[in-house]
Simulated assay, not measured.
Amino acid sequence: MTDVVHLVKLSAGTESVEQLQRWQASRAAQGPDGHPRHVTRMWPKREQAILAGGSIFWVIKGLIQCRQRILRLDEVTGQDGIRRCAIVLEPEIVRVTPAPRRPFQGWRYLAAQDAPADLRSARADDDALPPELAGALAEIGVI
């Protein structure tokens, strides 16, 4: 049995989870099957572990704030002829307990036991805290 592994990715230029949702609902973010996808240069070496139930955890404003389940990895070739990996995502974005994350390039693997917990459904509709406050609270372990 393969252990599940997740990916962590910066959502560059995104100011909020709602902005990420709007972008992914746009045609530009969707593949031919209508699912949102993120295209990256590198193909994950731990593909089987990702496809065993992994998610992509999005870092927005210095905090992991949400995740999406990864459905599959598709090979795509750009207009430049270079092979790339399209990470095809479940459309539903799930808010998670905010967790601080320093900037990095590309994506990183995240072990299942280290992944932030999903917010309880009762809290998922709460107004979002300002990122600075959420980050400070997460650093001291309050949220």
Rank of each mutant, 00 (worst) to 15 (best):
W58H: 04
W23M: 11
I60N: 08
I60S: 07
V8W: 04
R101I: 03
A12I: 12
R84L: 07
V8D: 05
C85N: 06
L7W: 04
A115C: 06
A29H: 12
L110S: 11
I56M: 06
E75L: 10
H38Y: 10
R27Y: 03
G54Y: 05
E139N: 08
E47F: 02
I64N: 03
Q105K: 10
E92M: 12
E132W: 09
L73H: 15
A134F: 08
D125W: 07
P36D: 06
L119W: 04
S26R: 12
A12Q: 14
V94Y: 03
R41L: 08
R84E: 03
P98Q: 05
I64E: 01
D126L: 11
Q30L: 14
R95D: 02
V76D: 11
L7F: 07
G54T: 07
P98K: 05
D126A: 11
V96D: 04
P98Y: 08
A49W: 00
L133A: 15
A29Y: 08
L133R: 14
W43H: 08
K61S: 13
I87D: 03
D118S: 15
Q48C: 06
P91Q: 10
D74K: 12
A52R: 04
G81E: 04
V59H: 01
D114N: 14
E139P: 01
D118R: 13
D80I: 03
H6V: 12
R83N: 07
G78C: 05
P100W: 05
S55I: 02
R37H: 14
L7G: 09
T97K: 11
V142P: 00
Q79L: 05
V96H: 05
F57A: 03
A115T: 01
V76Y: 11
D126T: 02
K45L: 13
E139T: 09
V5L: 15
A112R: 02
L137S: 09
L133N: 11
P100V: 05
Q113F: 12
K61D: 05
S16E: 06
K9E: 04
P130G: 13
Q19E: 15
L119P: 02
A111W: 15
Q30I: 09
S11C: 13
I93L: 13
P36R: 02
D74E: 15
P100M: 07
S11W: 10
P103V: 03
W107R: 06
Q65C: 13
V88C: 04
Q79R: 07
I87G: 02
R67P: 03
F104R: 08
E15Y: 00
L89G: 01
A99V: 00
A128H: 10
Q30Y: 09
K45N: 13
W23S: 07
Q65K: 14
L129P: 13
G78P: 03
T40V: 13
P91F: 12
L133E: 15
R84G: 04
F57P: 03
A111V: 01
Q79M: 03
Q19H: 08
R84V: 01
R41N: 10
H6Y: 14
